[in-house]
Every structure is written in C-alpha cells, then in structure tokens.
Design a protein around this nucleic acid. Structure first.
Length: 442
RNA sequence: UCCUCGGUAGCUCAAUGGUAGAGCAACCGGCUGUUAACCGGUUGGUUGCAGGUUCGAGUCCUGCCCGGGGAGCCA
C-alpha cells in the first residue's frame, strides 16, 4: 500500500480485507473503508463499514474505548472514509458471521450529506448518481459478476485456441446501412463508431484461424427498452474452415462455461441479488434447436399468427422461450431478413445459414451469428441487392479473392448475458456507466 | 418516429376543484445488541414550464419541456 496520508501508522495492526476477514478471527486488524450505515444508542454504536470487498458490522462500546473514539464513531456520516481498528470476532448475530469489536476509530474525511439514503429510490435518480450508486450492494454485486464473466469468457477463448485481435472503434463506413451509426468528424472527413468488429474478424480469421474481439460497440438507434443500450460490449469470435454447427457448438460451450464461473465464484453476489442459483444450475447442454421453419409452426400453434418470411420479434421470442429453462437456438432464417454477408443454405436457397441464441426468462437474443458468404460473386450480388456502396467494402471483397474458405462466427451481447445470469431486468444496470438515448451523464 | 404511463419537500409518495401532507434523509435530544433499529423534536415547497376556465387549480382545458415502459431495429 502507498505510504503517506491515510497509510498505516506505526503500531497499527495489519490491514486486511473484509472478504477474507474470517482468516483473522481472534486477531486485531485495521480496516480502511467507508461508513456504509450506522446506528447508535447512548452506550453502543453499530457501524456497517465497507471496503470494496465486503461489508462488516463494527461495534463500538462506550465503556471499552476512549471518549473521543466513541464520539468520532457516533458522529461519522454515511460514506465518510474511515480507518477502523478492532478485534475480529465470530458472532452469529452479525450479518456475514463476523464482526469487529472496535478499539480505535478515525475519520479520514467526513462525507457531506449523502444523496443515496438506505431507503428506496427511483431508477432515474440512482442513474443520475451512478458514480455513487456503484457503492451500493446491488450494483456492486452485478458488476462483480460482470467482471467474473468477462474473465471467464477471455479464458474460455484462450483455452479454445482463439487469438485476441482488437477491432477498430473508428470505421470508415456503415456496412449495414448508415442510419444506425454515430458519426464523427475525422480530420476533415467523416468516421463512424463501430457497430461490429465482425468484418475485421473475418480478415483476422484468415490470418490466425480462430480469433475474437471484445470491446465496446455503438448503435445510434433511438430504442429505449430493457434490452438495448447505445453503447454496449460485444464479444465476436470468428473461425476459418467452420460452419453453422461449429458456431452453435462453440456458443453453447461458452454460455455453459460462463455459468459455471458465476456459480463457482459469485454465489454470494447471486444471493445479494436474490437470484436463485437453481435457475442457472438447470442450464444444460445441448440446448434445444429450432429451425426458422419449425419456429414459425410452433408460434402459430401457440396462437401467434405469423407468416413464413416475417421476422421473429421480441414478443415471438418470449413465446418461443416460455416453458423452457434452457436457452434456445433458432437457425436458418429467410435470406431477406439477414445481413448481406450471410451465406445461403446449400439445401434451401430461400434460407441463410444464421443462428440466434435466445436466453430463457424473456431476456431475448444474447447471441447472433452464422456462416459468411465465401464466394465473391454471391457477395457482390448481395451488396447490390442491399444497395450498399461497394468502395468501402473493397478490402472485404479481397478476402474472397485470396484464398476464400468457409468461415463462421457470432456476436455475444455481454450486457444481455449478464442481465440473464443476474436476473436483473434491465441491461442498463449491467454496465458501469450506461449510455442510453436520454443519458450520457455521469 | 409511433403507442403508453408519469413529473408535488433532498428521496419515495399522498392530497373529492376549497388551509399542500406523510414516511425516510438531514439536524438536535433520548436509549447497552442494533439488523432499512426505535422514541421525541426541528428544518425543509415557484406542485416541470407557459397560457386558459373558475369566486377559488397540485387537481379541469390547450400547448410545450423532461423522464419511464414498449414498438420498429438489433446483441
């Protein structure tokens, strides 16, 4: 730890973290943190102190400490930064199982009146104070799980032999149409914030075989729903010499592994969020698979009148997913519904080799991907049909000129995955500082 | 862009067209084991903005602003 202001004073017992405080039972330790909440009576004060790793109740008895220590503890305000010294004691009355019998207490900085009280608040108010809200239990748990999932995903792709190839944020054009991109000035010209690293990953896959990128993605659509953000994180693997089954198999194992990591490392956080781990333990590969043809039939059987060729929207997704605890693959969509780079199904020319993975419990599409068109002629035809300007895609066409191979990949929406795993009903709570149509502050 | 709901104290909300209130927070006091502690007290308001109807508008009408949820689109 850095020496200087707030650093341990000579004679002070060793510092510890609240997460691992059980290892110091019976010993005297110093905690550096913030006052989360306090209650006091005339002779005893109960302080909930958090240090970023956990929360512990600290008990200050007037009879056992100096007068000024008791006063300092009693007068410390919510979220003041504090240094607490005391004896670690097992106590079943304490939440967490341990508490600290305080021997010394000092306030490092006295916090002004803290806007977030222990009582209820509306989402908009809390989001306006997101920089402070991060300290509260719920966001702390969600973002801890996010960290674990990101870590697990990176390790998963590492184990699978994928090479991380970062895609650019500034891009020269809008491959899927110009309306949905954020435009920015770029040395007198125009640039757009990336809406997908996929095209770049296709280039990288021809260099490394199996690659992935993982970074922020931007969409300028004015959507305001629980499943959308204007800035979100997407993980996009791409594989050379691969087909639709490889995409399905890889995404399935990826999801199973992310769940394993959360169940292994973040039980406590799931409990804080009142997320029943049984919902996640129930998820087992292989996930059910449904072709678009079958999905349309099932939807009509369940009372949705939807014609072949129509897109499966949010309501339809919910109907398909209901009654199952498993994520659901839907594959082989009508070509007209999908992007220009999708490969046609060799067994049915009406279809494209695409696949979506729908999360259970109404969390919607968490993965979208498929096989990419490998023939230059077919690609050019699709570029024409979609009315796209060919010049910015010249480099992409090169990939079909120089050793084109069957290749496939997908995009994973990190926030949607986290929302499902945590049981949070809105993706804006699964990213530290959400960017939505009506919010770019703080 | 469209549909829908909403905007009253720092926060969460109440108030039949008739004196703008409660709980929490903050502050002061009390209490030796509290778990969103409890008890007593104090402070706290341009009812989103503009106009209209009315003896009288937080409440009714018109316009605007801001936000929530949803659609389209997607991860």
């Amino acid at each position: 730890m850095r020496r200087g202001a707030g650093a341990p004073e000579s004679g002070e017992p060793p510092s510890t973290s609240i997460r691992s405080i059980g290892e110091r039972a019976g010993q005297e330790v110093a905690l550096r943190g913030w006052l989360y909440q306090s209650r006091s009576s005339g002779k005893v004060a109960f302080l909930l102190v958090r240090d970023g790793t956990g929360i512990i109740q600290c008990v200050v008895s007037k009879a056992e400490v100096a007068e000024e220590v008791f006063e300092a503890a009693r007068q410390a305000t919510q979220e003041s930064s504090v240094v607490v010294t005391g004896l670690v004691r097992r106590d079943d009355r304490a939440p967490g199982g341990y508490e600290l019998s305080v021997t010394d207490f000092r306030t490092y900085q006295t916090a002004e009146e803290y806007p977030i009280s222990p009582k209820e608040h509306g989402v908009d108010f809390l989001m306006s104070h997101r920089h402070l809200w991060l300290r509260s239990r719920r966001p702390h748990a969600v973002l801890s799980i996010r960290s674990t999932v990101v870590q697990a995903l990176r390790m998963f792709f590492e184990r699978e032999g994928f090479v991380l190839v970062d895609a650019p944020i500034f891009t020269p054009s809008a491959p899927e149409g110009t309306t949905t991109l954020f435009e920015t000035e770029y040395f007198g010209g125009k640039a757009y914030l990336t809406q997908s690293g996929q095209l770049y990953m296709e280039a990288a896959a021809m260099a490394f075989g199996k690659v992935y990128c993982f970074g922020p993605t931007f969409r300028a659509e004015k959507h305001k729903t629980r499943r959308h953000l204007n800035e979100f994180w997407m993980l996009e693997p791409e594989m050379a010499w691969a087909g639709l089954e490889d995409v399905i198999d890889l995404s399935e194992r990826m999801v199973v592994d992310a769940i394993r990591a959360v169940l292994e490392k973040r039980r406590r956080e799931l409990e804080t969020l009142e997320r029943d781990p049984a919902r996640l333990e129930a998820v087992r590969a292989p996930f059910p698979r449904l072709s678009y043809d079958e999905a349309i039939r099932v939807l009509n059987e369940r009372g949705c009148s939807i014609e072949w060729g129509a897109d499966i929207g949010g309501d339809e997704e919910t109907v398909l997913a209901e009654g199952s605890e498993q994520p659901l693959f839907v594959h082989r969509f009508p070509r007209e519904l999908k992007a220009f780079y999708m490969a046609p199904d060799p067994e049915d020319a009406r279809l494209a080799l695409g696949v979506d993975l729908l999360a259970p419990e109404g969390y919607g599409e968490i993965v979208g991907g498929g096989v990419r068109a490998e023939s230059l002629d077919y690609l050019d035809e699709q570029i024409r049909k979609h009315g796209l300007p060919p010049e910015p895609l010249e480099w992409y066409r090169d990939l079909r000129r120089y050793g084109s191979v069957p290749h496939a990949g997908f995009g994973l929406g990190l926030e949607r995955l986290i929302a499902w795993l945590t049981g949070i009903d809105h993706v804006r709570e699964t990213i530290p500082f959400p960017r939505t149509m009506n919010r770019i502050y703080p």
